[in-house]
């Protein structure tokens, strides 16, 4: 993980814990890259030529018979590092509590009732948010009411959980994990617990700038505006814009005039934003005149159209989602 704070032991026990906690951020697995050697030219080499060229199959990501010269293979690799965390993404992480008692050791400690709890501390609040751990085992489901039972672990066994958390704020986040377990020997038994903190920084990935301009109205139809927005990828990864929608309030309707409008026989090309790229989008906003002939009323000299929602996909389909605050036009 990005940064692990010194584990603070709740109990003042000097004896090392019999259970360890290991974590891994579960970003999407990636496709393995291969750099295939030049393919042998069919029938080009005379049979008596010395066989000193390593076979190009040796350079493939896995022993495939296809011998493709393409750089991407369908083989999945687990994330090698923590990477960057961005606002709008879902943070996933796996937590493993492992019984570290050596099999057949003299101490003969029995580890039972192992439980993991996780909380996320976010910048805007001093109260941490407790996280749901998946998957639930049958035993845990049964014990849900009493909240007493954990899982018994044989030496070398692990309890694995996955947590998901939607990142909504920029700044320092702390994932706090508490492991509680019972340690029983022939003569004694006790409940032990420890807590580990993992800190990481969440950055913004998308900067949205908007501008509203009044358009000449068309006869009786009411006022019209053009709402323009610049979407900047300020992260470090290439993203594909999935959707950009202006969610209008009552009294307004809007129409996107962006990439989703395609001519006949054309394919929709979703905009790809490399780091630093900016995409301009535009929406046509019209006020809806009701039967009595009145439109939406301004508040504090300002008309609020609605909010802009945007969704994107990062590498390997990693999803991001963001909504802006209220957007509108100031009336003069």
């Amino acid at each position: 993980m990005a940064h692990q704070r010194g584990g603070s032991t709740v109990e003042a026990v000097k004896e090392p814990h019999s259970v360890s906690l290991k974590v891994l951020r579960l970003s999407r697995p990636s496709l393995s890259v291969q750099h295939p050697l030049p393919l042998p030219t069919p029938g080009a080499s005379p049979p008596d030529s010395p066989n000193t060229f390593p076979a190009s199959s040796e350079s493939l990501a896995y022993p495939s018979a296809k011998n493709d010269a393409f750089i991407l293979s369908p083989l999945l690799t687990l994330p090698p590092a923590f990477g960057s965390a961005y606002v709008g993404e879902t943070f996933s992480c796996t937590l493993c509590a492992n019984n570290e008692v050596l099999p057949g050791s003299v101490s003969a400690k029995v580890i039972s009732n192992v439980r993991i709890e996780a909380e996320m501390k976010i910048p805007s609040s001093s109260t941490p948010i407790s996280l749901i751990l998946v998957p639930q085992t049958e035993k845990e489901e049964e014990a849900e009411k009493g909240k007493e039972h954990g899982v018994d672990l044989e030496p070398g066994q692990s309890l694995q959980k996955v947590v998901n958390f939607d990142l909504k704020e920029e700044g320092s986040h702390v994932l706090a994990v508490t492991v509680t377990y019972s340690e029983t020997t022939a003569t004694s038994g006790r409940i032990r617990t420890f807590r580990k903190l993992y800190q990481f920084v969440c950055k913004g990935c998308m900067v949205v700038r908007t501008k509203t301009g009044a358009l000449p109205s068309m006869g009786e139809k009411g006022r019209r505006w053009a709402l323009e927005a610049q979407l900047e990828n300020c992260g470090e990864e290439t993203i594909t814009l999935d959707m950009v929608v202006l969610e209008t309030k009552e009294g307004f309707k809007s129409q996107g005039i962006n990439w989703e409008i395609i001519g006949e026989g054309e394919q929709m090309d979703r905009p790809v934003l490399m780091p630093g790229d900016v995409q301009q989008v535009c929406f046509l906003v019209e006020e809806v005149i009701d039967d009595e002939g009145s439109g939406p009323e301004p508040t504090d000299g300002r008309l609020v159209f609605g909010i802009l929602s945007l969704g994107w996909r990062g590498p390997m389909g990693n999803r991001g989602f963001l909504s802006t605050g209220a957007l509108g036009a100031r009336l003069k």
């Binding site: 579960l26 697995p29 896995y62 022993p63 495939s64 018979a65 293979s73 369908p74 083989l75 999945l76 690799t77 687990l78 996933s92 796996t94 493993c96 998946v134 998957p135 692990s158 694995q160 959980k161 996955v162």
Partner: peptide, 22 residues
């Protein structure tokens, strides 16, 4: 094919980890 089978099994293993089936 043998190599493709190895790839599929490997990927199955990776996906199981994401489901908490280490």
């Amino acid at each position: 094919e043998k190599g493709e089978m190895a790839m599929c099994k490997q990927n199955l293993g990776v996906c199981l980890l994401y489901l908490g089936k280490m």
